[in-house]
């Protein structure tokens, strides 16, 4: 709540700032519109509403993830995603495969990239995206079903557009066998828990835990809870499995 209030206050401040600037402008008449490129205004949404800009050229409004009906939606070639931080869930379809990494995409242009057997390595279209994670060790350990220490690195953009890098030391532990129901079918899985600790930074030590339900026999995931970043927290995934 505090965050919301602060951002409202800050937005108000922005308006005040604009007013201050306005109050102080002594420019020639043509200056008041600003120095944006001549036609940027035309391409902006408001103009699009009355002008002749093709719909495809307009940025879409904030993505509202498609809500799916209940559990078990993951079947065949769909990946079901729940993002508690956004109160949203969606069904994603594969949109690309590059080596061991498959990219899944929602109809409203959110995408997740998962490294086989299903470890999240990138998000797009969410805002505070995970640009890329080096989670090769986790993926390999899950594929082999061998617990142990794994190193991770997450890279994210900061407000100055610099691509930062955070290293995490993680331990992947086998919690035990667990039977879960997916799309009405019982699956025998091994539940893994990956506990990660980051280096101590400005905000103290950052840590997170990921959960994976791996098929007991094959290197595929049925279900997982994986961490995206401090703003979005964890997302829940139901993997297609087959």
């Amino acid at each position: 709540m505090a965050v919301t209030r602060a951002s409202i206050a800050a937005t108000t401040g922005g308006v005040a700032l604009a007013l201050l600037l306005a109050a102080c402008s002594g420019g020639a008449p043509s200056e008041a519109v600003g120095t944006q490129p001549q036609f940027a205004g035309l391409d902006r949404a408001l103009a699009g509403a009355v002008g002749g800009i093709p719909a495809a050229a307009r940025p879409s409004a904030e993505p509202a993830l498609v809500i799916i009906d209940g559990p078990g939606a993951a079947s065949g070639s769909l990946l079901a995603v729940e993002i508690p931080a956004r109160g949203a869930s969606a069904r994603l379809t594969p949109s690309g495969r590059n080596g061991a990494v498959t990219t899944w995409r929602s109809v409203d242009a959110v995408s997740l990239s998962l490294r086989a057997p299903g470890v999240l390595v990138a998000t797009r279209g969410l805002g505070e995206d995970l640009m890329i994670a080096d989670a090769n060790a986790t993926a390999a350990a899950l594929a082999r079903a061998t617990p142990g220490s794994v190193a991770r690195r997450h890279r994210r953009l900061d407000g100055d557009l610099a691509l930062g890098s955070e290293a995490y030391a993680c331990s992947l532990a086998l919690v035990g066998p667990e039977r879960i129901e997916i799309a009405g079918r019982l699956r025998h899985t091994l539940r893994f828990e990956e506990r990660c600790a980051g280096a101590s930074g400005e905000n103290g030590q950052v840590g997170f835990t990921n959960l994976y339900w791996r098929d007991a026999a094959r290197p595929v995931l049925w279900q997982s809870v994986q961490w995206v970043g401090p703003e979005l927290g964890h997302i829940r995934l139901r993997h297609p499995g087959d």
Binding site: S7, A9, A10, T11, T12, G13, G14, A16, L17, P59, S60, E62, P63, S95, G96, R97, N98, G99, T103, R105, A109, V110, S111, S113, R124, G125, L126, G127, E128, D129, D158, G159, D160, E231
Partner: peptide, 23 residues
């Protein structure tokens, strides 16, 4: 008082996911 840090946007830019590289 309100402070603005250019490097800390009020909202992270949320841009539609790109098409992935077609391999």
């Amino acid at each position: 008082a309100v402070a603005f840090d250019p490097g800390r946007p009020l909202r992270a830019v949320r841009v539609d996911a790109p098409v992935p590289v077609a391999v």
